[in-house]
Design a binder for these strands. Structure first.
Lengths: 357, 357
DNA sequence: CATGAAATGAGTTGCGTACCTCAAAACACC
DNA sequence: GGTGTTTTGAGGTACGCAACTCATTTCATG
């Protein structure tokens, strides 16, 4: 009836006795320090495994004395997503402080490979762990690998560098996110047929390109009645996005769906609203005529648009979860603890009006 | 550029010096022990606040010595949701063990108020914290309040007892979940009009009743073209659900949407499949004729149904997150740490084929 | 001012680990 | 058998706090 899941109460001393060695030797094995014969190592590890011994994290943490230093390397400039990350770290302040963790924010030009690589190289040795919003480029990859070799724990955030030897990626699968957006647009458009527009920041950004890829995949295979128009590159800028989209909406009156891949949401919404206003004065209206609008991320703006019904769904990747997951993963890596992969996995949230967080 | 979020490195000794008292007094204040004059208490608390001092959790944990005991009180009988909770706790075994946390599972008849209340009363004093899947009933409420008064930390799981003095609720807002289901059915049905069916376990269950309430709310206010049929009570049983639904589908050929509130999914899917087969042989087919099917929870079964396209969306409440959140909340409560409410909040996940976790 | 109660100080011990030093033992090699 | 090297043992200190004891001071009250 009452099954105990974690009964351990052994200490290093018990393991030492079990293995027939001294405490010092167990310590050497536990921390991969040199000066222990291979078969002695095995004896100790066996004893540890046999008793499924877990070092007491509190004791380990206390004994090491020094605080740990982590840093988030993020894009400079006003970026709502990054501001949210910072805000969530602020909410964790007491939690961090109670564990003697120092977390800093470092702003850098993430979109300039050379600058980013240089920034990263400069941090070597200063931190126990880094969470990096990086772009996938050979020089960045090299910088990350150097950090890893120097013993720094490295986690990529939001945008991965899979070719590097980073320890972990905290973020979503962007192809799946694009597929999800495609399925939503297709299903919410319903029986209507027509054209679908895509507004992205730039197709050069890895995450945007992947989302578009996934989106087109679904549209092509499952919604043959909908034809996807060429991607508009709004550069995540409101003005530019609005202008491009307004022109497109004018040219194609039969646009029934819209996927906004990145930022520039304000401009996209403006263009859509203007179109809706025009149609209202000219007679046509109603939900049947409205353009299905799917975008990314829950911000103050997208929240408002969802509530107003302008936007139909937002694909979200919970920045709070990402911030906390990055810290937890770095901490687990630094301590040599296993990572709870299920916990740290970032899910693709579909947010509609009624499940707004 | 590099803003430090958590610089603390003070100790109790520093606080004692700051406040002009001894270590013992600080300790008394920190643990609400008697024997300190009110103004002395204030002086100490001021010093703590002024330096935003946080006791080192590792040191505190180490010093207290005793391991903590938590228990999950859950329904007996074969219940996939509860089995998942148990599985996720198993995945945390190393994490728990490293923190000297003992977590047990206690099965009880959750649907019998008297039995549940008696079980809870019997646990008093044995555990530092309890996570309880409870139903809202006066005797259960009283039992929970007694536990709280005795110093046990109590968290309700999945199903809340808001009238009790439980410390925290780990679960979703079921009315919002119902609303979300309603919005999904309505939007996915598209331009078609017709009838919508609801299959629930029982309207007597608080969570099911709340979901139905939210569902009807949205249907009534936003989808006037859809009329909701009376709720079928399938008692979470496959056979019964299938039988009831098959009869209903036969009687109303114009059913375009279906909301399955609880379990019995296998039966519901069977009834829908049979209907689809009939229509295929008789000519009509295609997505336009299919019944939109929205249900709850991601299990092996619903996952398969989503992939096959039989089911259109599942409202999910991530049992892994719930299990981990319950443990974290109990631990934070026991330690007197603040709870990261943003982190522990259970979100209403919309799961469709392309964002299956 | 005497008395007893309340408030406070001073000190100790122990939690389980990290990290260090120094000496002793085992071993390899010529 | 002697040399030098590697491996191991023994022991200590420190980390920051909880929890306790016991002595001392402060205070209110008669």
């Amino acid at each position: 009836m009452a099954e105990t899941l974690a009964p351990t109460a052994l200490t290093l001393k018990d393991i030492a006795r079990e293995a027939g060695v001294s405490l010092a030797t167990v310590d050497r094995v536990l921390h991969n320090r040199p000066g222990v014969r291979p078969d002695t190592v095995r004896r100790v590890k066996d004893a540890i495994a046999r008793n499924s011994f877990q070092p007491h994290v509190a004791a380990a943490e206390l004994a090491r004395g020094r605080a740990r230093r982590f840093a988030f390397v993020m894009p400079s400039g006003p970026n709502p997503f990054m501001q949210q990350i910072e805000a969530y770290l602020g909410e964790m302040a007491a939690w961090l402080s109670a564990r003697r963790l120092n977390v800093e924010m470092i702003a850098t030009d993430v979109f300039e490979p050379a600058a980013l690589a240089a920034s990263l190289e400069a941090l070597s040795g200063d931190y126990d762990g880094l969470a990096v919003v990086a772009l996938d480029h050979p020089s960045v990859r090299a910088a990350i690998n150097d950090l890893v070799d120097a013993g720094t724990k490295v986690v990529t955030l939001v945008s991965d560098v899979p070719s590097s030897r980073r320890h972990h990626y905290v973020g979503i699968d962007n192809i799946a996110a694009g597929r999800t957006a495609g399925a939503l647009v297709g299903r919410l458009v319903g029986q209507r047929s027509g054209k679908v527009a895509i507004v992205a920041g730039s197709q050069g950004l890895r995450d945007h390109a992947e989302r578009i890829f996934g989106f087109n995949q679904v549209m092509g295979s499952e919604f043959p009645d909908l034809s996807v128009l060429p991607v508009l590159e709004g550069r995540d800028d409101d003005g530019r996005s609005e202008q491009l989209l307004a022109r497109l909406l004018g040219k194609h009156p039969d646009i029934v769906g819209l996927y906004n891949v990145g930022a520039g949401t304000q401009g996209v919404a403006k263009a859509l609203n203007d179109k809706a206003l025009n149609e209202k004065t000219s007679g046509a209206a109603g939900r049947d005529k409205q353009v299905v609008f799917v975008g990314h991320d829950v911000t103050a703006l997208t929240r408002r648009l969802l509530l107003q019904g302008v936007m139909d769904a937002a694909i979200s990747q919970n920045p709070g979860h990402e911030a906390r997951a990055a810290v937890r993963v770095l901490l687990a890596l630094a301590r040599g603890e296993p990572i709870l992969s299920e916990q740290e996995k970032i899910r693709i949230d579909i947010v509609m009006r009624d499940n707004l967080p």
